[in-house]
Design a protein around this nucleic acid. Structure first.
Length: 203
DNA sequence: CACATGATCGCCT
DNA sequence: GGCGATCATGTGG
């Protein structure tokens, strides 16, 4: 179960009223780049005291495992912190950066294939502050996600990914943010975002 | 607008 | 012991 930390009240919404449907295991087990692209325009939502809170994802990054120097699982590194990345697709991997911010990732592929998608930004419904979730740390803070939630199952534990069959995002691609230390991997085009959204980070 | 800096701590070497 | 998948704030042009 997700830790009992309060999400921002301004992110409350009703997935059913929007016609959203929850994603299931096969979605997450696909290739990491495919999942990263498909997550732009999808919704991340958290259940808290019987209500749903969340927003539409507008920015993601793919992290490709042992061969990807920017990934925590680079070179096959396997420590307690990274363990959820080695689990089945659909798990959540959360870590603490810079001693104060959390980053949430959706684990992809299968057990033993440590790849994931970083959720970098989302936008709430009209009325919510535009930039409330315009960055990975801000997204976690707004939804009340912390490292205590690392390893939970997105199919099962009160945090979910929903498909939105509405308008498709205007997908754009770029290198990933903040991985200058990663050698040649720093230039790989693994960041995906909705070019029409005002909630994308680094604007 | 473009940098520059401080906060703060778990993780890995 | 060094540093990071960040963010807010401050400076100067």
């Amino acid at each position: 179960m997700i830790a009992n930390r309060r999400p921002d009240a301004r992110l409350r919404f009703d997935p059913e009223a929007l016609g959203l449907t929850a994603r299931t295991r096969p979605f997450f087990r696909r290739g990491t780049v495919a999942v990263a692209r498909a997550l732009v325009g999808a919704w991340i939502a958290r259940r808290w005291r019987g209500c749903w809170y969340g927003g539409r994802i507008v920015e993601t990054e793919a992290y490709l495992g042992p061969l990807d120097r920017a990934a925590h699982s680079w070179g096959g590194r396997r420590t307690p912190r990274v363990e959820p990345m080695y689990g089945d697709g659909g798990l959540l991997y959360v870590f603490l950066v810079y001693g104060m911010h959390h980053c949430a990732n959706v684990v992809t592929r299968r057990e033993g294939q440590p790849e994931a998608v970083l959720l970098r930004a989302a936008e709430g419904r009209p009325g919510a502050p535009t930039r409330l979730m315009s960055g990975p740390g801000k997204l976690c803070a707004a939804l009340g996600i912390t490292a205590a939630d690392s390893g939970i199952d997105l199919l099962d534990d009160g945090l979910r990914i929903f498909r939105d069959s509405g308008k498709r995002p205007h997908l754009a691609v770029s290198p990933r943010i903040g991985v200058d230390y990663a050698g040649e991997a720093k230039d790989w085009p693994l960041r995906f975002y909705d070019a029409d959204s005002a909630a994308v980070s680094r604007r």
